[in-house]
Write a protein that binds this DNA or RNA. Structure first.
Length: 355
DNA sequence: TAGCCGTGGAT
DNA sequence: TATCCAAGGCT
């Protein structure tokens, strides 16, 4: 059992150096050294590969990379290239703003940096289309700066090794990971360190693969040791809000308005609201209501919008003359005494505005 | 900060 | 078929 941190909470130098040695030895033996962008660490070459590899699989990138470099072998050539050629070279890769930004960045390099790439992660981010990941990748691979290149692989690998529970869907978690990993990056071979982590992340530590007992990284992997590996990285999913369309019935009788109590379970359980009728679509609301109430009148032009975590409601106020047995007519004095949902308050406000 | 940007592969 | 995801960055 390995302890990355000592009792005082300090990172163990011994474990770190053992991990680096294990990682780089594995990389030298099993890494994907055949990848074309690994035969040359010129910043221009590394840069092109890193941009192309953003959200794009390695096998897809290889032919594009070789064609691009053959057509535009230098920053200067890229800076001066016709847009038509650029789009031709990128056609099919997707995320076309990447290549437009690349030309912008090439022109920045020519105009502002005398044709030479900036040499630190921080300064590289001045260039269009280069964010924290790409800057760190270029800085480490081409210029030997010891900074972690935090991509999806590195998030996964280190969240598992160290059981880092920060939610990687939150942009603010990047800072935490950066601080934790920074002292682990090998200062002698930072570029290889970063690339080794990526190779590890696409092989032994893939998203859906558990570490095998004979893996050289098993003993460094805290989540493997307690069987929680596949829980990492922690990544919250953003639930998409299902659109829902409602008509809120406005029916007046003897100084009171129609209300209904919601079911005792589920969303807004037990609250009193205007009677709400769900429809499949926006247009169906008025049609549906007017079909059963010839004198139905749509009160508001724009719908009342209300967001739940998992639903997006759009509610139209519809005034009807008809009565319904299920409705309860409450005077203002009566309903003001009841607990109110935000949705109902919005509906009442909209009603006031539109009467 | 969340939504958006493209495509091909995997499940 | 639907959904997610892959070496992210911009607004």
């Amino acid at each position: 059992m390995i302890n990355w941190y000592d009792k005082a909470g300090n990172l163990s130098e011994k474990v770190v150096s053992e991990f680096r040695a294990t990682l780089l030895a594995w990389y030298d033996q099993k890494g994907r050294t055949h990848l074309p962008w690994r035969t040359n660490t010129l910043p221009y070459h590394v840069w092109i590969s890193e941009i192309m590899l953003q959200q794009t699989q390695v096998e897809t990138v290889i032919p594009y990379y070789e064609r691009f470099l053959a057509e535009l072998p230098t920053v200067k050539a890229l800076a001066c290239a016709d847009e038509e050629l650029l789009l031709k070279l990128w056609s099919g890769l997707g995320y076309y703003s990447r290549v437009r930004n690349m030309q912008k960045a090439a022109q920045q390099v020519m105009a502002d940096f005398d044709g030479e790439f900036p040499t630190t992660a921080k300064s590289l981010q001045i260039l269009a289309g280069i964010g924290p990941y790409t800057a760190a990748a270029i800085a480490s691979i081409s210029f030997g700066e010891a900074v972690p290149a935090l991509d999806g692989n590195m998030f996964r690998v280190f969240s598992r090794l160290l059981k880092i529970e920060a939610d990687i869907a939150q942009p603010k978690s990047r800072h935490l990971f950066y601080e934790v990993i920074l002292p682990i990056v090998d200062p002698k071979r930072p570029g290889d360190f970063n690339q080794a982590i990526m190779d590890l992340g696409t092989s032994l530590m893939r998203a859906k693969a558990e570490t095998q007992a004979d893996s050289p990284f098993a003993k460094f992997n805290l989540s493997y040791q307690d069987g929680t590996e596949l829980n990492f990285p922690i990544k919250s999913k953003k639930v998409k809000q299902v659109p829902k369309f409602y008509a809120a019935i406005i029916s007046e009788k003897e100084g009171g308005l129609a209300y209904m109590q919601r079911p005792k379970t589920g969303l807004l359980a037990n609250f009193w609201t205007f009677p709400l009728h769900e429809f499949d679509s926006w247009d169906a609301i008025y049609e549906g209501v007017s079909a059963t109430n010839a004198d139905a009148k749509q009160l508001n032009i724009s719908p009342v919008t209300h967001l739940f975590t998992h639903q997006k409601w759009q509610v139209m106020l519809v005034q009807v003359a008809a009565d319904d047995e299920q409705w309860t007519y409450l005077t203002p004095e009566a309903y003001e005494g009841l607990p109110q949902t935000t949705l109902q308050l919005k509906l009442q406000a909209a009603l006031k505005e539109n009467l």
